[in-house]
C-alpha cells in the first residue's frame, strides 16, 4: 500500500512542485497519474521511487516512510520496487539478458535462480529469442519490454512507470499496456504517469489528475479529461 500525507515539495530554486497531496493507493490497484506538463506529475512519480524527497509530509510505501529513509537504505528500498521510464534506461553495453539479470545480481541471488527467473520474465514480455542482443539492436517497443522485464524480475509489489509509452508508436503502446495489464492481474500495484489519452480512456482504471501541484481529480474508472 502507498500512502501520501500532507506532501509538499519545494525545489531549492523556489518552485513549488507539489502543494499538499493526500492520497492512498491500495495493493493491486492500477492508477493513472495524468495532468498537464509542469503540473507536478513528474515530481510525484520521482518521490515514489525516492529520487526526490518531499519537503514536508510523509510517503509510506510497503511500510517504509520515504521522507525519512536514509541514503544508505535507498538501494534496499528500490529492490522491492520496479521502475519503468520513458527512455527505457537500459545499460547500453549489456545484452538484454544481462540488463534484466542485473537487478537480481544486485541482490546477490543464486546464479541458477537468476537464469531461470530472467528467462521467465523475458518469456512474459515475449523477448526470450532476443536475450543475447544489445539494446541498440532492438526497436523502441522491444527496449521498453526489456525495461519492464527488468522492473518485475524481483517480483516487486509496486511498479512505477513514468510515461512508459511516451516514446512509442500507438500500436507498440498497446502491446506495452497489455504487458502492464498482465502484471497487474498478478497482483502488482501499478502507478503510471501518462499523456496517452486513448489508453486512459480505453483501458479504464483509477485516474488521479494533478494540476498545480494538487490533486484536481481522483476517480475510479476515470477519463483522461484533457484535450492532450
Amino acid at each position: 500500500m502507498i500512502e501520501l500525507q500532507e506532501v509538499y515539495k519545494k525545489y531549492p530554486n523556489g518552485v513549488t512542485a507539489i502543494n499538499g497531496i493526500d492520497v492512498k493507493i491500495n495493493q493491486g490497484e492500477f492508477v493513472y497519474v495524468v495532468g498537464p506538463s509542469g503540473a507536478g506529475k513528474s515530481t510525484f512519480i520521482k518521490m515514489m521511487y525516492r529520487e526526490e524527497v518531499p519537503s514536508s509530509g510523509t510517503i509510506t510505501m510497503n511500510g517504509v516512510n520515504l521522507a525519512k529513509l536514509k541514503m544508505k537504505k535507498v538501494p534496499l528500498f528500490r529492490r522491492n520496487l520496479g521502475v519503468v521510464f520513458q527512455d527505457f534506461k537500459l545499460l547500453p553495453s549489456k545484452t538484454v539478458y544481462e540488463n534484466v539479470a542485473f537487478a537480481l545480481e544486485v541482490i546477490e541471488a543464486q546464479p541458477k535462480f537468476i537464469k531461470k527467473r530472467v528467462m521467465e520474465v523475458l518469456d512474459l514480455v515475449n523477448l526470450k529469442h532476443k536475450a543475447r542482443m544489445l539494446p541498440t539492436e532492438l526497436s523502441g517497443g522491444e527496449q521498453q519490454r526489456v525495461s519492464i522485464a527488468r522492473s518485475i524480475v524481483n517480483s516487486p509489489k509496486v511498479v512505477i512507470a513514468d510515461e512508459p509509452t511516451g516514446n512509442l508508436d500507438p500500436e507498440t503502446s498497446w502491446e506495452i499496456m497489455n504487458i502492464f495489464e498482465e502484471i497487474n492481474t498478478r497482483g502488482t500495484t501499478i502507478v503510471m504517469a501518462t499523456h496517452n489519452r486513448e489508453i486512459v480512456n480505453t483501458i479504464k482504471h483509477r485516474v488521479i489528475a494533478i494540476e498545480a501541484g494538487k490533486i484536481a481529480r481522483d476517480e475510479q474508472r476515470g477519463d483522461y479529461g484533457y484535450e492532450n
Binding site: P75, L76, F77, L81, V83, K89, P92, S93, A103, V106
Partner: peptide, 16 residues
C-alpha cells in the same frame, strides 16, 4: 554516469 544511475535505480548499493 548513466550506467551508474541505472545501477542505483535497480537497487545496487554503492559498494556494489
Amino acid at each position: 554516469r548513466r550506467e551508474i544511475k541505472i545501477m542505483r535505480l535497480v537497487g545496487a548499493t554503492n559498494t556494489f
